[in-house]
């Protein structure tokens, strides 16, 4: 147990270090100049620009700057965001609060819909329902999520006026002031858009696994014992498709994060994905690095959760893992 925790902590630290170096290097070679991105349209003299650069410490070599930044991070100081003029941790905290609601809803929704569609398609394999679901999945898989987002905007908010165009709360109102209903109506379209990215993969994967289960010997045996198809699906099918589902769905957290950047941009939803785009475009290195590290931890935890959950849920791993303990019990059973 301790070995597992230490191993994974070391692994994560190593990953964070590599990611931070690569991100820093990429920001460094990117053509965006932080100072000119910051001053934008304002008429600023060369001298003033020099002063800003000096103030931000941009005149030092990249290696020195990285080391300084890393030292501060190790002391718990992620620096100050240049565009929001706030502590990086504070910005991430605020933004993540909004994003996690969006991603969480989309994640749960795509999981449930995907699982349901996959099971239905497999159970009616080769029939109309199966074909319809497959076509739907292929369409979904081949359309980019930002395009789906725009389509939803055109239909539901421009034409039908059912949902707002963007933001997380009505204009002129902060999120904390908005009512639950208002917040939900602002969430609906982004959640739907984001969930679409996951559905088809989960549906097709679940369908494939379920077909395997339905063609298994134990499915034949269940049928020979007079169990109905849907009875079998609920009794044996679900538990057998659940393991691959957990791996896939927890492993898809990274795609969810990537998808949220697009979805939040389309719907101007003020979450972490939006902040990522802003910080990158405006050369806000501290914030950008902060978000990158944060998302790395987030995705790492998602994958770790998948591994742990599968080990807990699968009896072959759970009870096969501690052979020493079990062999004693086994002797008793066979005797």
């Amino acid at each position: 147990m301790w070995k597992f925790i230490i191993k994974n902590t070391l692994r994560m630290l190593l990953l964070l270090w590599v990611v931070s170096v690569v991100t820093f290097a990429m920001v460094e070679i990117s053509p965006i100049d932080a100072v000119s991105a910051y001053v934008g349209e304002y008429a600023v003299t060369e001298q003033q620009q020099q002063k800003i650069a000096e103030y931000w410490g941009l005149n030092e070599s990249p290696v020195v700057r990285y080391c300084k930044w890393a030292k501060n991070v190790l002391h718990g100081d992620m620096g100050v965001s240049m565009i929001y003029r706030k502590n990086v941790m504070e910005v991430i905290g605020e933004r993540f609060g909004l994003s996690i609601v969006l991603m969480g809803c989309a994640w749960v929704l795509s999981g449930l819909i995907g699982l349901f569609l996959g099971i239905v398609a497999a159970t009616y394999q080769g029939r109309l329902a199966d074909k319809a679901i497959k076509v739907y999945c292929l369409l979904l898989e081949s359309s980019p999520s930002f395009w789906i987002g725009m389509l939803l905007l055109i239909v539901f908010s421009v034409r039908l006026r059912l949902f707002p165009m963007g933001l997380a709360s009505p204009i002129g109102m902060s999120v904390s002031e908005a009512t639950l209903g208002q917040r939900l109506s602002h969430l609906a379209l982004p959640v739907l858009t984001l969930s679409f990215t996951g559905i088809s993969k989960i549906t097709l994967q679940t369908r494939e696994k379920m077909i395997q289960v339905l063609e298994s010997d134990y499915a034949l045996f269940a049928k020979a014992r007079g169990e109905s198809v849907w009875g079998f699906v609920f009794r044996h099918g679900l538990r057998n498709v659940l393991l691959p589902f957990i791996i896939l769905h927890f492993g898809s957290v990274s795609e969810l994060f990537g998808g949220s950047v697009l979805a939040e941009t389309v719907f101007t939803y003020p979450g972490l994905g939006n902040a990522t785009v802003q910080s990158a475009l405006k050369g806000d290195v501290p914030l950008f690095l902060g978000i990158t590290l944060f998302s790395t931890i987030f995705v790492f935890c998602g994958n770790l959760a998948a591994n742990v959950l599968v080990a807990v849920a699968n009896p072959q791993i759970r009870e096969g893992g501690n052979r020493g303990k079990r062999s004693k019990k086994n002797e008793k059973v066979t005797a």
């Binding site: 134990y218 034949l220 045996f221 020979a224 014992r225 007079g226 538990r239 057998n240």
Partner: peptide, 19 residues
Amino acid sequence: LGTEIVMIPQSVTYLDPLM
């Protein structure tokens, strides 16, 4: 089926591995 008429399958693969 399953009560009066039954089948005895041939191997362990006829059992659900997770139940």
